[in-house]
Design a protein around this nucleic acid. Sequence first.
DNA 1: CACAATTAAATTGTATACAATTTAATTTAT
DNA 2: ATAAATTAAATTGTATACAATTTAATTGTG
Lengths: 142, 142
Amino acid sequence: MNEYDCLKLDRQLCFPLYAASKEVIKKYKSFLNELDITYTQYIVMLVLWEENNINVKALGEKLYLDSGTLTPLLKTLENKGYIKRSRLKSDERNLIISITNKGESLKEKAKDIPYKMGKCINLEEKEVVELYKILYKILSQK
Amino acid sequence: MNEYDCLKLDRQLCFPLYAASKEVIKKYKSFLNELDITYTQYIVMLVLWEENNINVKALGEKLYLDSGTLTPLLKTLENKGYIKRSRLKSDERNLIISITNKGESLKEKAKDIPYKMGKCINLEEKEVVELYKILYKILSQK
DNA sequence: CACAATTAAATTGTATACAATTTAATTTAT
DNA sequence: ATAAATTAAATTGTATACAATTTAATTGTG
């Protein structure tokens, strides 16, 4: 035991959080490849399926992403035909993101993904609940 | 309740995992700025402080990173003077990473970071233990 | 009204991530 | 012994992330 033991990798909480997040996202890839979208594009679509016609700022707040990430990503999703980007008439600073028919129909293809992913991550129901609770506790401390 | 409810953002486990990981890393930034390293460079140094003279493959296995990420990052750390990159004489395919004196002395500056970070993330001791356990359970399912 | 302050996106620059491929060194199998 | 297979890094190409700055639109204030 010395004063540097706290620097051991397996003593850090940040590291398994970082690594597990990446590993879980990697597992999504095989399912998302079929929809021709990336993980970040997928979570953008998750928001839009729930709340259409949202501006970039609100989207970024929900997803913890800024315009530097979202601007190019939303252009990509528009090029793929899943969304439409248009300025809000009453305040042109706002870019409004809306789903196209193609984007709406993607929902049908996506709806099995959560179930498939659930089978990939082998956790007890109790662990899922606990993990969820702790992660949102961290997120609430912004 | 409909068949698409499973696609709601707040029903996903992946999302808080992804978001919390990024938020935690963001909190590290203020501490790591003082050492002039990024989060990924920091976890590389964590490994090297524990195990000097490690090759890129072993480093990547510990950190869940591949050579595509590590190669440029290790060049950066070498340019900063914290590590040295050299080929293993007995098998030149291996690039061996070793710490310089400057890299070793960085450990002194880093040793308070885990404590400082702990104060940033407000979790009960029980929650920390539980989170840690669940995350490593996910990681063990590679 | 006019101009400063604010706001929302976009842009710029730097640093990951990772799949897929390539290169170079070493090992295996014939 | 030598060609084929394997292995470790490096490279290439694409896609995030995010801090910091810029641009353009709108709002607040004297």
